[in-house]
């Protein structure tokens, strides 16, 4: 019994010091000078435009990721083809690649001196140091999320139902919409939430390709660094609360979905 209580106490202490305190300090710093100051800081034009840019990025990245994720999961779960395993490995690769290295890779190919970026330059198309660059690297870092959640569910369930739908005369699209999607809805939502959180919060990879133009190509995580380096600590922490809240909401949503719709090993 004694060991048990000691271990629990140690674990809770560790979690408090290592995990909870950093989050608590964000709110403490942000609200130290009162709610009005916080509100003013969050509604600074630069911070506001950073919020807008971050939201726009997520609104582009997450739907694209969902479409890609559904396609990849469908192809991998329902068909055997040469290179199937290789495709899976490639999809997971972004998890193994650090943000700065990822950003650099994009710069080398899509930047003005890279083969693709260089070829596009004469047409006035620039892919780096703007929204396009931010979107591209965000697609990279969020690449595995939807596939990862949807694939396991798709592989263990629904094949017979889909066959039944086909024999009943459903077109491929009808089968997908009426039978497949309802079976994977929650896995899809779960993956999309994780992808959203990551797209909103990515710092390293985005900072390589954003160009860091104030009020233009600063996402919220970058804006926090900028404010902090400007010694505008309150502003930085105020902006940080927005992201910290989003992180907490993400966790709560995740927990709720995991509770009500146990995803893994689904089937009836």
């Amino acid at each position: 019994m004694k060991a048990k209580h000691l271990l629990i106490a140690l674990a809770v202490l560790f979690a408090l010091v290592v995990i909870v305190l950093p989050v608590a300090v964000i709110f403490q710093r942000a609200f130290a000078e009162g709610f009005a100051v916080w509100l003013a800081a969050v509604s600074e034009p630069e911070t506001r435009s950073a919020i807008v840019l971050t939201v726009v990025t997520a609104l582009i990245v997450v739907p694209v990721n969902i479409v890609f994720g559904l396609c990849a999961a469908w192809a991998i779960a329902r068909f055997k083809f040469p290179g199937r395993r290789a495709l899976l490995v490639v999809i997971e690769l972004p998890f193994a690649i650090s943000p700065i290295v990822a950003g650099l890779c994009f710069l080398l190919v899509y930047g003005a001196y890279g083969p693709v970026g260089g070829a596009l330059q004469p047409y006035g198309i620039q892919l780096m140091f703007n929204l396009a660059g931010i979107v591209l690297v965000s697609l990279f870092v969020t690449c595995p999320f939807v596939v990862r959640e949807v694939l396991p569910v798709l592989s263990v369930s629904g094949e017979d139902e889909e066959r039944a739908a086909l024999t009943l005369g459903a077109s491929g699209w009808q089968m997908f919409r009426l039978v497949t999607v309802p079976n994977i809805t929650w896995a899809l939502v779960y993956g999309a939430i994780l992808a959203t959180a990551r797209a909103i919060g990515e710092f390293g990879a985005v900072s390589v390709v954003s160009g860091a133009i104030r009020g233009q190509t600063m996402t919220l995580p970058l804006q926090i660094e900028l404010l902090y380096n400007d010694y505008n600590t309150t502003g930085a922490f105020a902006a940080a609360t927005v992201l910290a809240l989003l992180a907490l909401v993400t966790l709560v949503l995740r927990g709720l979905i995991a509770l009500t719709h146990p995803v893994r090993g689904a089937a009836q």
Partner: peptide, 8 residues
């Protein structure tokens, strides 16, 4: 179907 494959 053997599993009936009803739409859950």
């Amino acid at each position: 179907f053997q599993s009936y494959a009803l739409f859950r």
